[in-house]
């Protein structure tokens, strides 16, 4: 009986190995199953989902206007100090002092793309962009000023 079991063990082992080999051969013979995306070549056709969190940007309209009121909600919401609002006081037409941003400094090198600033923003002034190629040669290039030079707050945004 021992010999039969010995031979049966060998047979079973060989069959289990053959099944595995059949699977790898299956893929060897079917190049259509290849799933590799050739990244830098497919840049033009690369579609990232609209919710993808790449970096924080501040959309401006064609008149170079943004929606940021300088309320600092994003700065407070940020867990690691990536956003810094530098604000100033503007004199409105009625002669009142009004808080507005001078600069919204964004430290991309600190940002973890947690989306908390976007959630916190009461006036939808900032949003996440789908860019992801952030590598630069100098760290200082990662410190960005989100509002464009000379931009103003949009009409009607409080």
């Amino acid at each position: 009986m021992g010999v039969i079991r010995y031979l049966r063990d060998i047979w079973r082992g060989a069959v289990s190995l053959a099944r595995g080999m059949r699977r790898t051969l299956y893929y060897f013979l079917r190049p259509k199953e290849i799933i590799t995306q050739q990244y830098p070549d497919n840049r033009l056709t690369l579609n990232l989902p609209e919710r993808f969190k790449g970096e924080v940007v501040m959309p401006h309209n064609e008149n170079n206007e943004h929606r940021c009121t300088g309320c600092q909600a994003c700065e407070l919401a940020c867990p690691n100090g990536s956003l810094k609002v530098i604000y100033k006081y503007e004199i409105t037409a009625e002669g009142k002092k009004k808080k507005a941003i001078d600069k919204l400094v964004y430290h991309l090198e600190l940002c973890t793309m947690c989306n908390l600033c976007i959630e916190a923003c009461p006036s939808d002034a900032i949003k996440m962009a789908q860019t992801f190629e952030h590598s630069v040669f100098d760290r200082s290039q990662l410190i960005k000023i989100l509002n464009k030079p000379g931009s103003k707050i949009m009409e009607g945004v409080e």
Binding site: T24, L25, Y27, F28, P31, E33, I34, I35, T36, Q38
Partner: peptide
């Protein structure tokens, strides 16, 4: 190349 094909990838290209 053989390993790449078996592993559903392209290999050196």
């Amino acid at each position: 190349k053989v390993s790449a094909r078996m592993q559903v990838r392209l290999g050196p290209n």
